[in-house]
Amino acid sequence: MMGRVGRALVWHELLERTRDRWVIVISVLFALLASGVGLYGRSAEADVAKLTGPSLVTLASLLVPLVALVLSHDAIVGERERNTLGLLLSLPVGRFEVVAAKFLGRSLALTAAVVLGLGAAMLVSEAGGAATLMTLMGPTLLLGLAFLSIGVLISALTRRQATAASVVVVVWFGLVFFYDLGVLGLLVITDGGLPQSVVSALVVGNPAGLYRVQMMHDLAGFEALQDLGVTTGLPGAAATALLWCGWLVLPTAISGVLLSRRKVI
């Protein structure tokens, strides 16, 4: 249960983040590109689940993690660098609660960005397609929240905001672009000798991979995954929920523990 300071901090974080120009720029860019995808799908008169949906998944898997990391990378280190972390923690609030409130406040800002982006695509897509695109909302939010949580952890581990910014860029490139290439590389090196369960585990071990696989499966069916080389070992609903929970909770929880155990602020 969040106390008075925690609740105030949630709204403060939301207010502050929605005034961050980088967050605004990337969110608007996401909304513009998403509505572009929606318009393209409408003009092509293709099945939303086969064209617009998968295209939006690809777009969201690139931009939503970026929005989330931009939103969260300075959560702790930014306060420390501005000398306001001490002021914040001099309020009657626990350190863990501060981290949780920061995560929640920034989650609300992220939700606004995702709703804006996917909402724009739904508005311009053909009638009846909006319902299909609506199914993207939840998993896309989960993807963003997972990266938000990772960003909070980075902000708790680094000592300078510039370092945190550099690390999130590396993490973004790593998890969004290079991770899958790495898995493919492994397959090439092992000449396809890796068991499918290992490949699947590797793919869904990355929140961006988990999101892509889950959405491809939901939108285009199992055949689409087979086209990507994934044939077995996808997690069930419970395992998927557990994976998302892990990505959402663990990095933020570790951040809270790190801050709580710190001897000096």
Binding site: R4, V5, R7, A8, L9, W11, H12, L15, E16, R19, D20, R82, N83, T84, G86, L87, S90, L91, P92, V93
Partner: peptide, 30 residues
């Protein structure tokens, strides 16, 4: 902590907010 007020050294508040918004947050928090 309810009984203490603190002015940190060289404090740099978030530049995106107005002074009123910032004080509004601390008023809610306090």
């Amino acid at each position: 902590k309810e009984r203490i007020g603190y002015l940190p050294e060289a404090v740099a508040f978030s530049e995106n907010l107005s002074g009123r918004q910032l004080l509004g947050f601390f008023a809610s928090a306090r």
